[in-house]
Design a protein around this nucleic acid. Sequence first.
DNA 1: CGTAAAATGTGATGTACATCACGCAATCGT
DNA 2: ACGATTGCGTGATGTACATCACATTTTACG
Lengths: 190, 190
Amino acid sequence: MQAKEILKAHIAKTATLTADEFEYFFSCFKLQSYKKGQAVISEGDRVQHEYFVLDGILKTFYINDDMKMFILQFAMPTWWASDYNALYTGSKATVSVDCITKAEVLCLAGADREKLCSEIHQVEHFFRWRTNRGYVAAHKRLLSLMNSDAKHRYEELMAQYPELFSQVPKHLIAAYLGVSRETLSRLYNP
Amino acid sequence: MQAKEILKAHIAKTATLTADEFEYFFSCFKLQSYKKGQAVISEGDRVQHEYFVLDGILKTFYINDDMKMFILQFAMPTWWASDYNALYTGSKATVSVDCITKAEVLCLAGADREKLCSEIHQVEHFFRWRTNRGYVAAHKRLLSLMNSDAKHRYEELMAQYPELFSQVPKHLIAAYLGVSRETLSRLYNP
DNA sequence: CGTAAAATGTGATGTACATCACGCAATCGT
DNA sequence: ACGATTGCGTGATGTACATCACATTTTACG
């Protein structure tokens, strides 16, 4: 499926755009290819864009003072990724984004998103709903972190996204779950 | 300050409404008073509303199978609270909301919010931005849970919301931080 | 293809926290 | 005002997980 069709189908789930509106909407995106391991946003960058994943898997992550990595999100096809705090406030990136596999993404400038949102009511509607879902998912994950032990969180993740098991190195899954790679290894090799 | 003025000032930070639009917007809210300890949303409820806090402190929380409570949010004046998952999807509440102190809130039906969003572009704009901020805050908290120990999280919370120390019982602060009340007690009585 | 680098498995040890148990202090409701 | 409830402090003990150390396996790539 072509980039345009993927995006169209994605939008259509929450908003109704005319053909002309969608053409205009789509014209604001830029197709980009990344190699495995390539950085999309690095800590300290000025963040000007957000990214819609067409193919491949990205990760958004934070590295603390001890060089330990924590993964906020695996972004799979039809997911969006950026450092939204930096993008909205104009501050520098504290969260980084890079490619776990080679990837195809559509890139949208924050300024263009705001322009589109103000020009086309349904686009604003779409982005409101997209963020709603992210907000709810983040709270669900907060509860999971506070409530469940590592094994339970691991099983939940594998039940929801079994493809991660084969497509993503285990130490990254550990960094997402908030456990050490050793502990994760012991969870499924008891 | 009156309810209307508080809400007006709150909205004005992110959206521009004409006087007529704001009157219409405000007319969809219903003022409600709650006593200390009173429930706003209970697990299992059909959730039809969200709540804008004028005065007092609410909490949104989850209780697990072992009857242990986890707090997702303390909602202080000008904050919003609900079970957004249930409100958006029509499912039953898994998250509850109640009042830590006596409280005054403005109550908005989900259906009315959607109507307002579709009728007034700037209202949709406002709600998009409100959720944006919540999304960013939730991710910040995820990182804090994964990255920092209990003492660090406690100090961050007290630095940002010192009023919680005096206004909210310690065991609720513990339930927000994701530690036992005993551990929290030992953090500030070393 | 062959070597370096990255990813994974596994034991030994340490630790931040939970849990249990109890006593005391503050607050609430009638 | 006074008993009941709720909140708080503190010791003793248990445990899930981190960390360190090193071996083994898999993958990347010149």
